[in-house]
């Protein structure tokens, strides 16, 4: 047997007796044995399987936990980014709102210096950031506009749309009542998909499924001069206007609701105002704080 094979067999501990003897005969065998004995000193430190496994289980658990927390943090961050994005997309760009509470009027100037006066109990909303591209406001209630010349100016209301280029006009968009008066220039009113052009001194009223065109000699709406004037206007709208101007609540017979009335009332004198609406209809009134009851005279 070759020396190499012998050594290999020895290395694999598979020498038989005869081979073992042959191996002992090799001159290198003693040095191999010495080497082999010395090698035992180099044994790897013991590996404590039990203990290490416990440690591993702990590390595994930490690992399992770490993952959902990372995901949670990620989700929260994502929500914040989306929220901030939405904030910038909608709120920051967006709408400036102006309010006139009952019994007060608010004057404001739009970014192009156009003047808006809000009558009592009205709300105006417009998009500040896109004003240059789109002169457009949304209105709930009544307002007088003095629009500077420029691109198209639009007033959107629940009832209809009023477009102008540069002019003075009044828009009244109340519950079941829509009214536009033009005092200067030309306005275009879109109401129930019909377009009406109003030159200066012309007005447009819509209530109770009727539309009426009128003329006026005035250069400003009456309510800018501390009184409200009505020409053939249903009683409910006059009563509503009175409620808004004095911040009161009127109680009256429903039969009166749709009676057309021509009258006017002052804004600073409740008794006079109530007389202005009760005398023509032969009613009497009773004031209890901010509750006013209208009754027919006997």
């Amino acid at each position: 047997m070759k020396k190499e094979d012998l050594i290999i067999k020895w290395l694999d501990n598979s020498l038989d007796e005869k081979e073992q003897k042959a191996f002992e005969q090799l001159d290198a065998s003693s040095s191999f044995k010495k080497l082999d004995a010395a090698l035992q000193h180099f044994k790897a430190p013991a590996f404590d399987v039990e203990n290490q496994f416990q440690k591993l289980q702990a590390a595994k658990a930490a690992n399992n936990q770490a993952f959902p927390i990372r995901r949670l943090v990620g989700s929260i961050a994502a929500i914040f980014i989306v929220a901030i994005g939405l904030y910038f997309a909608y709120f920051n760009n967006s709408n400036d709102t102006f309010l006139a509470q009952n019994s007060e009027q608010t004057t404001l100037y739009l970014p192009d210096n156009s003047l808006v006066i809000l009558n009592a109990g009205s709300k105006l909303l417009y998009d500040k950031s896109h004003w240059d591209e789109n002169r457009s406001v949304a209105l709930e209630g009544e307002a007088f506009f003095k629009v500077n010349k420029g691109s198209a100016f639009t007033v959107k209301t629940a009832q209809g749309k009023v477009s102008v280029l540069g002019t003075e006009f009044d828009v009244k968009a109340r519950q079941d009542y829509f009214e536009v008066f033009c005092f200067e220039g030309l306005v275009s009113v879109e109401y129930q998909s019909t377009n009406t052009k109003l030159p200066a001194g012309h007005g447009f009223k819509a209530f109770l499924d009727k539309t009426i065109e009128e003329t006026t000699l005035r250069s400003k709406p009456d309510w800018l001069e501390q009184h409200s004037a009505f020409k053939s206007v249903p009683f409910f709208e006059i009563a509503n206007e009175l409620e808004r101007q004095y911040d009161i609540e009127l109680t009256y017979d429903a039969a009166l609701k749709n009676i057309l009335l021509t009258t006017s009332f002052p804004h600073k004198n409740l008794d006079a105002a109530l007389q202005a609406i009760t005398i023509p209809l032969k009613l009497s009134y009773q004031i209890n704080g901010n509750q006013v009851v209208l009754k027919s005279q006997k």
């Binding site: 290395l11 694999d12 501990n13 082999d36 090698l39 035992q40 180099f42 044994k43 790897a44």
Partner: peptide, 9 residues
Amino acid sequence: LLNRIEGKK
């Protein structure tokens, strides 16, 4: 070393 120390075949 796996062979000599750990006695692996």
